[in-house]
């Protein structure tokens, strides 16, 4: 126990205690002066009718609906391509992983300029290939969120690709050989050997990918600051604004509980689906 103590002190005080306190705070009207009264479920009732909270939840789901499938497909495809003995694979792995270890601030600022409607390289490229009226990207309420999803997929795919690659190493080689001898096509081998063998990896990746999508914040904060209008405001930013800008700590905690519950729910649902398929 003495081995665990130093880390546990920090972990307990800075993670466990805040997580437990969160639930208490969400039931109070905790404010900037630190005075608080028990208000029961009032904060949650207020959330139900708060239109900007609805927007934040909708936007978070909208972002997740784009980011999760896109990242899964891209990172799995890249991992499959890299899982062959080709020249140049090491170089590509480095290139793919590099965005993930670069800071969000640097990434967001560079993409911000790259997305400039008139003078940015992305629209220059689009015009070059014949798109006459390229989107306004971060200046457009319709295109801002897709732009965010593009940047975050670009950033994350190397990370998930590494996880998929690690998972692919656990699929037994003999199974591929056997399938090939039986005359299975590449697609059949993928469907019947690779995908089932990858299931534990896919389960794990889906969970963290979803949690990471639900909590998306810093990228959006630097890239769009939630705008234009409220078109890219997400749950985390709602929490941040209510808590740190408006000092409504109790109300912000209630929104945090919702985020917490969403992440827990996803973990449970994916876990159950995975379990049922196992049976």
């Amino acid at each position: 126990m003495s081995f665990i103590l130093p880390n546990f002190l920090g972990f307990g005080l800075l993670t466990l205690v805040p997580v437990v306190t969160l639930f208490y705070m969400s039931l109070t009207n905790w404010n900037v002066f630190g005075t608080s009264q028990w208000v029961g479920l009032d904060n949650f009732k207020r959330l139900v009718h708060d239109r900007s909270f609805h927007t934040a939840v909708t936007n978070t789901f909208y972002y997740s609906a784009m980011h999760i499938p896109l990242t899964l497909v891209v990172s799995l495809s890249l991992a499959l391509l890299l899982n062959t003995k080709l020249r140049g694979v090491a170089f590509f792995r480095t290139a793919a992983f590099f965005p993930y270890i670069t800071s969000i601030v640097a990434i967001a600022m560079v993409w911000n300029i790259m997305f400039s409607p008139d003078a940015g390289p992305i629209n220059a490229l689009l015009r070059f290939v014949g798109v006459d009226h390229p989107p306004g990207w971060l200046t457009s309420t319709h295109w801002a969120m897709p732009a965010v999803a593009i940047v975050s997929t670009w950033r994350d795919m190397g990370y998930y690709m590494i996880l998929f690659l690690a998972g692919l190493q656990t699929v037994p080689r003999e199974l591929y050989e056997a399938a090939r001898i039986d005359g299975a096509s590449a697609w059949q081998r993928f469907r019947n050997v690779t995908l089932p063998g990858l299931r534990p990896t896919t389960f794990f990746i889906t969970v963290i990918l979803t949690i990471n999508s639900f909590k998306i914040f810093d990228l959006i904060l630097v890239l769009t600051h939630g705008g234009p209008g409220q078109s890219t405001t997400v749950i985390s930013q709602f929490i941040y604004t209510k808590g740190f800008t408006e000092s409504q700590f109790g109300y912000a905690s209630a929104a945090s509980v919702v985020l917490f519950a969403l992440c827990l729910l996803v973990t449970l649902v994916v876990f159950l689906i995975n379990k049922r398929r196992d049976a």
């Binding site: 993670t15 805040p18 997580v19 306190t21 630190g34 909590k215 905690s253 917490f260 992440c263």
Partner: peptide
Amino acid sequence: TIAVPWQSYMIPQFVM
């Protein structure tokens, strides 16, 4: 706690 986003407990942590 690895599955609990920091964004969800940053408020109580900050208050503490």
